[in-house]
Design a binder for these strands. Structure first.
Length: 282
DNA sequence: CTAGGATCCTGTCAGC
DNA sequence: TGCTGACAGGATCCTA
């Protein structure tokens, strides 16, 4: 679930709370969720949090890196003097930690904890050295970050997939990094194009608008704390609520289009639930 | 090479 | 209440 804005929200949160702290012990509650030897990271200090697409990189003082990917249902929960939780938006992280869906957790040297919850077990943490990072198949084949892409480059990329639906192409991480199901739908809405249009049918103007839309909707989501962030410091339960505040079509089927007043519809494209306005997307 | 579908896994929800 | 199938904010692998 977490897409680029959610992972960036997690990155910023964990950076604030965890840089400078040391992993004392890792508890692997689900073998499938952890790749490598957890003992390799125990005793090392966290030096930085980075992000590439939807992948989170936890840099360590011993030169190793933990690559974390949350896939569909991953969550990161930091529990110390303050609590920070972000990722998949279900209520399970209100439970006591470690909880039903905790797959990995870490004891930090100041007594705080970091939990990785993941209902469906698609996500993982992987311990990697410089070489394995530099040759990692996922990372090396990742397309550019959306805001690093020039309009002409984006248009050329679409041209290389002229026969494929726009949505399938922007969801493919090889083509552009970080776009997931929410922002694919929102980006298409912004550009006024139907998600199943073949890439080859887009004008240069529509292509430009689509890239602009992807950048804008994802930036707006980052600015609002991601669509899923909960900040337990605030006892009122306020949450990052991109979906409630800014989403125009995603999970809004049956509602009115904010742009033309038409009806928001839902169908299936590229194997995914797809939301669009039947009135103003062509 | 592309496109489409199945698959990993577990829970929730709608419809009998 | 209990069962069944569809679906889920991702990515990979397989087939045609």
């Amino acid at each position: 679930m977490p897409e680029l804005p959610e992972v960036e929200t997690i990155r910023r949160g964990l950076e604030k709370y965890l840089v400078g702290k040391r992993f004392l012990k890792l508890h692997i509650l689900c073998e499938k969720s952890f790749r490598g030897d957890p003992a390799l990271v125990e005793g090392s200090e966290i030096t930085a949090f980075e992000r590439r697409g939807k992948a989170l990189l936890i840099r360590l003082s011993n030169g190793l890196t933990i690559m974390a990917h949350l896939r569909m249902t991953g969550q990161m929960i930091y529990d110390g003097t303050e609590r920070f939780a972000a990722g998949h938006p279900d209520e399970s992280f209100r439970e006591k930690m470690p909880g039903r869906f905790t797959r990995i957790y870490a004891d930090l040297d100041d007594g705080s904890h970091l939990y990785f919850n993941d209902l469906r077990k698609f996500g993982f943490w992987a311990v990697m050295d410089e070489l394995s990072l530099a040759t990692d198949k996922f990372l090396t084949s990742l397309g550019p970050e959306p805001w690093d892409m020039k309009p002409g480059e984006f248009y050329e990329m679409l041209g290389r997939h002229a026969g494929s639906p726009v949505k399938a192409v922007i969801l493919n991480q090889h083509n552009i990094a970080g776009v997931g199901n929410i922002y694919a739908d929102e980006g298409c809405f912004y550009a006024g194009i139907l998600p199943w249009r073949k890439c080859g049918s887009l004008s240069r103007k529509e292509s430009d608008k689509l890239l602009e839309g992807l950048c804008k909707v994802m930036q707006a989501s980052i600015d609002s704390g991601g669509s899923t962030m909960r900040d337990y410091v605030r006892a009122d339960g306020t949450r990052g609520n991109y979906l409630e505040k800014f989403a125009s079509v995603f999970r809004r089927e049956g509602q009115e289009c904010p742009r033309c007043g038409g009806e928001i519809l839902k169908t299936r494209t590229a194997g995914r639930g797809t939301h669009y306005c039947g009135g103003c997307q062509k």
